[in-house]
Each structure stands twice: as structure tokens, then as C-alpha cells.
Amino acid sequence: MSRKISYKDAINEALSQEMERDGSVIVLGLDVSGGSGSEGQKSDAWGGVLGVTKGLSLKYPDRIIDTPISESSYLGAAVGAAACGMRPVVELMFIDFLGVCFDQMMNQAAKFRYMFGGKAVTPVTMRTMYGGGFRAAAQHSQVLYNVPTHIPGLKVVVPSTPYDAKGLLIQSIRDNDPVVFMEHKALYAMKGEVPEESYTIPFGQANVVREGKDVTIVAIGRMVHTAGQAAASLAKAGKECEIIDPRTISPIDWDTILKSVEKTGRLVVVDEANPRCSMACDISAKVAQDAFKALKAPIRMVTAPHTPPPFSGALEDLFIPSAAKIEAAVKAIL
């Protein structure tokens, strides 16, 4: 049965159901329980810094494991445990902290299978928070999903809705490869229809969020909703946008994107990340290479500028791609 719950609760439910189903699923991270070793509440004091894992330590006290602020050691411990038969879900609080622990993701988890000749299985899910809108400034707002996407051996999942968050997280935990699961902090409160029962969404299957014939908009994560606002506004002027949410960017569903562009002849890519070496560039290049003849106009990319995320709300609102900017990009090529 389906009911409306938040993106945050959908993630919590996915974790809970997988922990119930499979005793090898453990959750590690800073404050995932909270209160360990404290004088006050002994467990579940926080349930994650934004409460995403709230309540789980009461249900699975031995498998929700608080860590010291030592991302390299605990992310690497999750990778090592995965290579030894566990199915860990490790939380890197903010993707920005990748800077202190990238080796364990990039050189260890991602490489084991290939460099050990196909013998290693490393089923680790690395959950992490990304994105702007919280006035959290340059070191807590970045959109770095393109970084793990560049690394062969990693899978990268970027859910935009509560439904996708639950189904893709369950798939991530069951998947036998290392997965980076990207959660937009501004989506946690968003509500949507989510089935109570367990389900999976396969990787590499894009979602056509909105059908249209005039222009294809590929949007990632939170930008799916911003693109939706732009499309609604453009629809009033009689312009039909087709919005594609790739849902996973490694692997990525090129077929759905290419087919859409072949239909519409126009492409706008909306990516909250910085523009250089980005998913916007990646998707644009692929379409330019494989669907060039279908294009009736230049491809447009709507991205953050090539600056760190600013602090001031006056600046951050200009930094994050807006519906108005997407609308302008569409109008420029129609």
C-alpha cells in the first residue's frame, strides 16, 4: 500500500527494511545513532545529523554504529567489511568531506574487482548529502556527483523523489558493486507516494518525468523539480518540454536520452554542479556525438557558475540554477 512520506523517511524505511531482511547490513557513520558514550541519552540521540537514520539504533542496536570523525578509517572499514562478507551502508555526512577520504573510495573500493582479476565483491553503499540551498557555504554545499562518476568501478545514484530514493537505496544495498548514493539535503522534507512494501528500481533506467515534443531537458537530482517549474511555465506559452531524470548517472540510460533528443531535436541539460568536467558536459558531449543529425539548435547547459558555493543567500540564489534560467535557455533554442 502506498502513502505519502518524506524523502528522508523513504531512505529510513529502505534502511530499516533491508536491515530486517539481511543481517549482514550494517550502518556506519558519524552520529548515525548519536549519543554513543555520552552522559545523557545512550542511543538514537540524533539518528544522523538531519535525522535520516532516526529510530534505527533502537531496532538494530548492534548494527547502527557511531564512528569517530575519521572519515578515511570508517569509510575504509566499510569497504574492508564489504570485501569480507558484510553489506555495509556507510554515511559520509557531506559529499564535501570526500576530500579527506577519497582514497578509500577511489583507489580501494572502486579498484578491487578489476585489479584483483574479477575475484573481489565489494557491496558497500556510500550514502552522502550534497547540494545547495541551505546557506551552508563552500564546504557543505557542493554537488560532486560527477567526481565518483568519473571513476570506473563505482556506481552513482541521484534520486529526485521519495519513491526513487527508497527503491534505489534498496537496489544499492543489494547491488554487489560499490555504490555512491547521493541525497540532496533540500529534498529531505519533500513528500511523495511511496509503497510500504519493499521494492527496487533497476540502475540505468531513466524516468521520463514529463513528456513533450519541443525540447528535451535532462535534469539531475533536485534540478528535476526546478526543471518541472520551468516546464510548467513554458507550457502556458504552448512550449512542450520533455523532462528526463536519469536517476543513476553511473550507469546512465543513454538510450532514453538519445531517443528523446531524436524526437525533440533540442537539448537543455540542467546540472546543479560546477560546469567544467561535469555531468552537463558529459551528457552534452554524448548527444553531440551520437545524435548530432537530430539537433535543430545548439545544446544548452544550465549549471552553477565556475565558483565555489557562496554563503550569502543573495549570492547562493544566483549560484543555483533557477527555473527562470532554465526557461531562458529553452527559449533561446526554440
Binding site: G76, A77, G80, G85, M86, D103, Q104, Q108
Partner: peptide
Amino acid sequence: GANGIVGAGGPLACGAALA
């Protein structure tokens, strides 16, 4: 595994021990 990254085995061994 042998490891090309100096010191990378520490976290991995902790994970193996946790398992």
C-alpha cells in the same frame, strides 16, 4: 591485496576485523 597506496590497509583491516 598488496596495496599501492601507503597506509591504505589500516582501514581495510579494521573492516575485515569488524566483519
